[in-house]
C-alpha cells in the first residue's frame, strides 16, 4: 500500500452542512493517522446524491456511505477499532444515528480492484474525457466549498 489513501464519501445532498463536512474530513485524517501512522496522506472525495437516488429496503434512505481503504490483510482488531472510532465520531459531528452511516474499510488492494470495476462501466472511447470532466468538477467543488465534491450524477 502506498501512503496515499483515497477516501470516498457518498452523502445525501444538503444532509450535512459544509462546516460538518470539513470537520468530518479532519476527523477521518486525524483518526487514520492516529491508528496507522502520520505517513499516510488521505484524499477525501465527497459525492453528493440527490434525494430519491438512495434506497434502503426499497424506502428512501438518508444513509451516508464511506469507504476508507486500509493496509492489506490488516488484523481484524486493528481494523475494527479504527472503524468504531470513525463511526462514533461521525455520529457525533453530524448528529446522525448509527443507522445512517455505512463504513467500509477494505484492503487497499481490494479497493483498487473495486475502483477498476467501477471504471469498467464507462464507454472506453470517452473514459479519459469522463475522468477529466470528473476531476474538473471536483476542483470546482474544492474551490467553492473547500473540499473535493461533486454530484454522483454526470
Amino acid at each position: 500500500m502506498n501512503n496515499s489513501v483515497r477516501v470516498m464519501c457518498t452523502i445525501q445532498e444538503n444532509a450535512i452542512d459544509k462546516k460538518s463536512i470539513k470537520a468530518l474530513e479532519r476527523m477521518i485524517k486525524r483518526v487514520y493517522q492516529g491508528h496507522f501512522g502520520q505517513e499516510y496522506k488521505l484524499n477525501c472525495i465527497w459525492l453528493t446524491m440527490p434525494f430519491g437516488q438512495s434506497f434502503l429496503a426499497a424506502e428512501n434512505s438518508t444513509t451516508s456511505t464511506v469507504q476508507i481503504p486500509v493496509a492489506d490483510e490488516l488484523a481484524a482488531p486493528l481494523r475494527h477499532a479504527f472503524m468504531s472510532e470513525v463511526c462514533t465520531q461521525w455520529q457525533s459531528i453530524t448528529d446522525c444515528n448509527k443507522n445512517e452511516i455505512i463504513l467500509a474499510c477494505p484492503d487497499d488492494g481490494y479497493a483498487q480492484r473495486y475502483f477498476e470495476k467501477v471504471d469498467e462501466r464507462f464507454n472506453p472511447s470517452l473514459k479519459h474525457f469522463i475522468k477529466i470532466k470528473l476531476l474538473w468538477r471536483l476542483l470546482i467543488g474544492k474551490l467553492k466549498n473547500g473540499y473535493f465534491t461533486t454530484s454522483i450524477n454526470f
Binding site: 429496503a57 426499497a58 472506453p124 450524477n153
Partner: peptide, 24 residues
Amino acid sequence: PQTFVNVVYSQNVSLRKGIAINIL
C-alpha cells in the same frame, strides 16, 4: 434481511456502447 439491501443510482453516465443500464 431486507434492511440490509441498499440501492443507489448514478445517472447520465456514458456507459459502454450498447449498454443502457449497469448494475454493480
